[in-house]
Design a protein around this nucleic acid. Sequence first.
DNA 1: ACTCACTAACTGACTGGTCAGTCAGCCACT
DNA 2: AGTGGCTGACTGACCAGTCAGTTAGTGAGT
Lengths: 219, 219
Amino acid sequence: MSTDETPDQSVPDEVHEELMQATYRALCAHGYADLTMQRIADEAGKSKSLLHYHYGTKHELLAAFLAFLLDRFEKRVESTEGNAPDERLEFLLDKMVPEEDEDETYDRFGLALNELRMQAPYVEAYREQFDRNEDVIRQRFADIIRDGIEADIFRDVDAERTASLLFAALDGARLQRVSVATPSADAEANQSARAAPREVRAALDEFVVSNLLRDGGDE
Amino acid sequence: MSTDETPDQSVPDEVHEELMQATYRALCAHGYADLTMQRIADEAGKSKSLLHYHYGTKHELLAAFLAFLLDRFEKRVESTEGNAPDERLEFLLDKMVPEEDEDETYDRFGLALNELRMQAPYVEAYREQFDRNEDVIRQRFADIIRDGIEADIFRDVDAERTASLLFAALDGARLQRVSVATPSADAEANQSARAAPREVRAALDEFVVSNLLRDGGDE
DNA sequence: ACTCACTAACTGACTGGTCAGTCAGCCACT
DNA sequence: AGTGGCTGACTGACCAGTCAGTTAGTGAGT
């Protein structure tokens, strides 16, 4: 029974937190493609061997990191349980597309996370985490929409389908911001891509949200 | 003056085509993360040295490959120049989200391409290609919408903004199909993600396209 | 028609460097 | 004296890029 599915169990809480933070920083600094165990160790001020000692392989460490992230995200989202459907919808939409983070740096972490995501099909341990994550978010959208319909705030649309659209559009927007808008490129070419998240957000409000709220819709 | 910005110029056409095809196959077989010069060479039945001889570095080879792809895509899309705006819109929407390719294999190439895309911020040569590609597609959407508005087929919406939404949503949908729906995962969990592109497509038709076509919309 | 000079396409063997993972052992604390 | 947390030194595999060549073709001079 030593093959526990959650190896993080054995890692002391304090060390675990510290190493997860270090992984976060290392990912931001180097991206996933250039992430090495050594760099994570450096970021934590610990030895590379320690990482192997606690998590076994690199893949297992990263899987633990994804689980760590997911927990945080779910907790943040759950904190709006009580509000009205339309407020919760706006809140979730905002959460998914963070504003332009800082002055000139793009979203290094979001980028690294997507690098990881692209490895999910090759790495079972990653895939589990991402699948769970996407399911949770899409479900949450669908739940909110269903609640809104029941409360007669939203029109009677297909909740699953609408949730899929919202999720896909925001995901796509985030992807563009992350992969195109870079500090070094000239402002001209950057402009449209950097604005993409806002544009998409605005278009969603125009086409979807306002459509949901319009109370006189037939069929 | 041997430092030409387009090294492909110097590569014999026949060999170039052959090596690009080999690169395609190698990407499908191994993904970008596990792509090596040797594997491409093997796929082409040539030596690894030849790749360096013609393209210099790995990055330059991949950049040439992206340019190769982009040209093909643009040619395919341009072939609908004459049709009506609503037909061209449907055509482009379909082109961007390929149907479930084969029986059980997911879109290996689409996945590899997104791996590459996530490297764009780190690799100038990749970024140029992807930026160009995304600009072309978004512009095409916007052009079609503008044409439709002028021809009084579409409502008078913000063309740029609507194009951004379409592009982002489809991009997101493709991403999900590519990164989540895998052959090995159990059917249950797969179902929603595998269906995502169709769902998104349907939702776009419901919220955006039908909204565009509705001729009685105010403001 | 036959060398000779030159070149482009191409190759095999090699190098320098990187990195995940291992292992033997150290240090507290109990 | 034993155990858990931790480390430095090491290894084996892998890989991009290099280099000194080989081969085939082309064209010029005789």
